[in-house]
């Protein structure tokens, strides 16, 4: 089986600090992969490299068998295929929730508001935000904002979704509503890569869990294996701290 997304020997440095030190990773179609590890282990940077928000220094990234890490390649078409949701939502504060969602499809795919509005309405009601479409981000709770950010990424109809610790900035009682959205997407067969601290969630839903440590994938495997019988001492130490 060929992977939907493949990383081989991916390296990324910021100044003197190498954040990714040769990452190999395969994500199959419809698979959900969770990246776990301490803060600063390179999870976020790896996600940002996958949709070319950060150019990689070395290695190759393949999307459906096409090398997307070629220097000088136009990143825009790739980003339409690979959506990302950030920890801090990053909604556009001067636009309503619906306008946030419709901006990119309007400008990039040239669709009109009239065509988009019913589709966007369906997405909003599917994620329990039917009555929040015309609110501005600062009128929404953190959990609602994060769900709008997910809808905004989905509206581009990507083939892969990346989630960068999307529940880390939320109050504990709001985490559940955002995880429900991920569960829903998982049910729809969306290919997903998550950087997350929600171990219970990773254990419940992931096909594969990767433990990152100091810029390397130290260990990876099905969640049952990795959580109950980790092979590496560092993985054990990390899991004993967070579980």
């Amino acid at each position: 089986m060929t992977a939907k997304l493949s990383l081989r020997g991916v390296r990324k440095r910021f100044g003197d600090h190498e954040v990714c030190k040769g990452i190999d990773l395969d994500v199959a179609d419809g698979e959900m992969v969770c990246l776990i590890g301490a803060s600063g282990s390179g999870k976020s940077t790896l996600l940002r490299c996958m949709n070319l928000l950060e150019p990689i220094d070395d290695g190759t990234i393949w999307l459906d068998g096409t090398d997307i890490s070629e220097p000088g390649l136009d990143p825009q078409p790739v980003r339409q295929q690979i959506g990302i949701v950030f920890q801090s939502y990053n909604l556009f504060p001067h636009m309503t929730a619906a306008e946030n969602v419709m901006l990119a499809p309007r400008r990039v795919y040239g669709r009109s508001r009239d065509v988009l509005r019913p589709q966007v309405e369906r997405l909003f009601s599917r994620f329990g935000l039917g009555d929040r479409m015309d609110h501005y981000p600062d009128q929404l709770s953190g959990g609602q904002q994060q769900r709008v950010a997910i809808i905004r990424a989905l509206a581009m109809e990507p083939q892969i979704m990346l989630f960068d610790e999307i529940t880390s900035a939320l109050d504990p009682e709001l985490v559940g509503e955002v995880l429900d959205v991920l569960r829903d997407l998982r049910g729809q067969g969306m290919t997903m890569v998550l950087a997350t601290h929600e171990m219970g969630f990773a254990r419940e839903l992931a096909d594969k869990v990767c433990f990152l440590d100091a810029g390397r994938i130290l260990e990876q495997g099905p969640p049952d294996e990795l959580f109950s019988a980790p092979r590496e001492a560092r993985t054990k130490a990390f899991l004993s701290r967070v579980l």
Binding site: R48, N51, L53, P75, Q76, P77, R79, Q80, G83, I84, F86, S88, N90, L91, F92, H94, L103, A104, R107, V108, R152, A153, M156
Partner: peptide, 23 residues
């Protein structure tokens, strides 16, 4: 992060400036 969000949606730099940054 506002530019990142716009870029991640596939918006061009021009559109990012016009619709996200300038307003």
């Amino acid at each position: 992060s506002q530019r990142s969000a716009a870029a991640s949606l596939g918006l061009s730099e021009r559109d990012t400036m016009r619709f996200v940054v300038l307003p």
